[in-house]
Nucleic acid binder design. Sequence first.
DNA 1: CGCTCAATGTTGACAAGAGCAACATCAATC
DNA 2: GATTGATGTTGCTCTTGTCAACATTGAGCG
Lengths: 189, 189
Amino acid sequence: MSTSAHSKRGYHHGDLPAALLRAAGKFLEKEGVEALSLRALTRRTGVSHAAPYRHFRDRESLLAALAAEGFAMLGRAQREAAAAGGLRAMGEAYVRFALEHPQRFRLMFGGQLKIARHPALREVATQTFEGLSGALAARVGDAPGARDASIAAWALVHGLSQLLLGDRIAPGARQGRGQDQFIRDVLGT
Amino acid sequence: MSTSAHSKRGYHHGDLPAALLRAAGKFLEKEGVEALSLRALTRRTGVSHAAPYRHFRDRESLLAALAAEGFAMLGRAQREAAAAGGLRAMGEAYVRFALEHPQRFRLMFGGQLKIARHPALREVATQTFEGLSGALAARVGDAPGARDASIAAWALVHGLSQLLLGDRIAPGARQGRGQDQFIRDVLGT
DNA sequence: CGCTCAATGTTGACAAGAGCAACATCAATC
DNA sequence: GATTGATGTTGCTCTTGTCAACATTGAGCG
């Protein structure tokens, strides 16, 4: 399947960076960050073990690119939710993103990436967050304390995502509700 | 410095597990989980590279023990705060713990540890959380929705910790307040 | 059309770490 | 005092990240 470049590849690959990122994305969600090795990716991409170094400074840079993709996705999800359903929908979309891409989310917020070392990543992340806080400000106003409330809202949503991902919430707490309904109820408090 | 066992150590160490955990704790906070290698610990402990395997099944088990210590610490901090200042104080203590032991916190909640594989860890963690939700329930009552509110409160506190650790909060948001005051204000909303 | 060169891949190293197995040492017990 | 189970050690193997030297190729220039 997939792009023309795949079948009749000779010495040169055609678009290794994209292929690596695609493979890495799949591997990431299946096995987790710590299991993701560059060499595993080269095997799956049919390329030699040192090839990635032509496109990524080192393993961490590949991870940074992966995280950047993640922020882009999250940003898009947030914009769509904002357009469609307002604040509440944005919160739910945030949590949904985390649950749909647990390992990606972990990579983005887990803290193993030293953001300072990856300007491109810092860029996308900042942009996403500005969009987010912009949307919040537009709906919350500029009263003193509004800023704090925005941060609290974000923290709530983010924390709920983390706890759900980590299976830290006792099964009993859901009290029979579906996951979606549960999330709505908790965020609604 | 240090215990009697240190100076005149012969073939046997005296208390390797404890020594390893101590070294690991220091190393963890200084260099982060991913940089923590068993071999580095053996060097600092003056013991051969395979010695840890007499006491920990593998690297992950050592990390699990480290995390377990963390949950015990957090639990203690929570109990003290509960006794001294109530709900508000507990929240602040939680965030303070995260900021004082960033790497430990990351290890505890970062999700790289498969908790199912480490019963002892699961035990302490569960115990800590039960204490936590017990204290919450005692102060919030049993009204319908109270349970959700507890979870929301926990999520808020946890999320704020994460965001602060990840440097995700724009410097401007603090608006000149000290860190402590800022945390109080955000949790107060 | 044929050459040249920069980009992209490859091969073959090295060092570091996880983990295993075979062997060494010690301390407590009979 | 001999035995033995717990604790350490030595010496591998396998995997991985990373580097350096070399190979191949397509694009642009003459």
